[in-house]
């Protein structure tokens, strides 16, 4: 990216202040359509995050040919170097899964990050493997090409507990054309809404269209 770029969006990152503003507007609309998002304060600081919980039917299976979770030096006796492998999975059962989604601001990458965790209704957390098997097949192939670049278990920066995280490395990359397009057409968009409509569906989160049509965008 050349630094001499003439644009009123000088960078396609999001600063912390804009993050808070976008969240505020996002939450206002969520309050109107009552889809369950709320703000969580982090005690002892001005920081916080947007959160939502949902109960979603899911399959508790595991990917047959997803070897990374098989333990140290997994020895399966099967030659698994075919990179076409997207995943036949054994469906063990269909259960209700409690999902908890958090939208946090990454000051390092200067973009929002989606954290989530999932557990069965009796509190048993889903493994990374099980989370993978519930990702829509349309995304799975793309994600498996670089599985650790995209979905990993990470410590929640505020809670200190394990969450899954969609890695922010590529966020700026896919947001840039969207923001540029909006910019060209002199349309204002809410970064959070646009971003979430890209990453949310990967993990079962849908963003109703009204967020894009009704929501006032920040200046």
């Amino acid at each position: 990216m050349s630094s001499g770029e003439v644009s009123n969006i000088s960078s396609y990152c999001l600063d912390e202040k804009s993050f808070h503003l976008c969240c505020k507007l996002f939450l206002q609309h969520s309050g109107v359509i009552r889809d369950g998002w709320s703000w969580a304060d982090v005690k002892g600081s001005e920081e916080g995050y947007v959160k939502k919980t949902a109960i979603i039917p899911a399959k508790l299976g595991s990917l047959l040919n997803h070897k990374a979770d098989d333990g140290m030096n997994a020895v399966t006796g099967v030659d698994e170097c075919d990179d076409e492998a997207v995943g036949d999975y054994i469906v063990q059962s269909q259960v209700l899964v409690h999902y908890e989604y958090h939208i946090l601001y990454s000051i390092g990458h200067q973009v929002p990050i989606l954290y989530f965790r999932a557990s069965t209704l009796d509190g048993q957390p889903l493994s990374l493997d099980e989370v993978w098997s519930n990702i829509h097949p349309n995304y799975r192939q793309r994600l498996l090409q670089g599985p650790w670049d995209t979905l990993t278990q990470q410590e929640h920066p505020f809670l200190g507990q394990p969450f899954f995280m969609l890695h922010p490395c590529h966020t700026e990359e896919f947001m840039k054309p969207l923001l540029q397009m909006a910019d060209d057409k002199k349309r204002k968009i809410n970064y959070i809404t646009t971003w979430l409509s890209v990453v949310g569906p990967v993990v079962g989160l849908d963003v109703p269209l009204s967020y894009h049509t009704e929501l006032p965008a920040p200046d």
Partner: peptide, 10 residues
């Protein structure tokens, strides 16, 4: 599981 990340491979 509530405190530690799983670490199943290097």
């Amino acid at each position: 599981d509530r405190d530690l990340l799983r670490c199943s491979s290097s």
